[in-house]
Amino acid sequence: MTPRDTSGTGTSAAHGTRAVPPVDASMSLLNEVIFRPVDAGYAEAAARPAVARSVGQRRLRATVNLVVAVLLGVVTMSAVLALRAPRPSVVESRTLLEEQITERSADADTLQQSNEELSAEIARRQEEALVGKDPALFDELRQLELLSGSVAVEGPGLVIELDDAEPSDPDEIDPRTLVQDIDLQIITNGLWAAGAEAIAVNGQRLTALSAIRRQGPAILVDLAPLVAPYTVEAVGDVQAMQTAFARSVAANHLTTLTANYRIPTSLRSATSLTLQGSGTTTLRYASVPDDDVASSGATDDEGTS
């Protein structure tokens, strides 16, 4: 019995004249697609008797064929290339944004530079004005500047270096294998806790007002974007810092980064580090309170809040 013979009375159907519709009549479309996939034109052309043509006619047909074929090839290939290439408008806006970024970064660099020059100028003027008149005040100012991180410092210390992990697949970068703002925060906090007196990340000096944060994939210290590799320099008592840092959560964190995310890290001591100053920081809201109000007001506030 054939699979199509479903009448139940196999013999009568086989011998009878009644035309039994095939059981898969409703599938004719699929059958057509699946069982005759090759263009019917090929079979017809092969079955057609060959027409005798003159050499000129044959040459003409061949030329037309060639031209059409070349055109089709060009069209298909350009379609493929167009599908593979990113959309032009996207590329355009991207280059525009890139240009803007470069431009603005250059602007920011220039401003930063003039800021530093002006700070140096101010320092020089202050020195001139104060040294002669009030050496004690000048010394105090010097001390305060040093403590607040607005001037450059020099001294022995630790250097911690981190870099983004080498991506195993360039197309798919696991963000966890990149150094993140939280990593730098933990390390710098660990260094402060270990007794660092001054810290700079990639040359950006950290002060009481500094922030390490993330903007998209970039890490910003204050407002300056950093690029890998990251170098954290801390000035302080090398021996004491090393011991304290090794015991801290930050050291653990470094080990975790290397072990789990293949982020290369290194910790070494340096006999002499020079950290740039952060320039003058401006306080917009905080001001020195009056002496008598200060003592009473401060305690009042603490009491109520």
Binding site: N65, V68, A69, L71, L72, T76, M77, S78, L81, A82
Partner: peptide
Amino acid sequence: MIAVLGLLIGALVGIFLDPTVP
């Protein structure tokens, strides 16, 4: 066979010229 040859030539030309599709 001319058609196949032509297609290949066309494809190469397409790669080389990289025309923009409207």
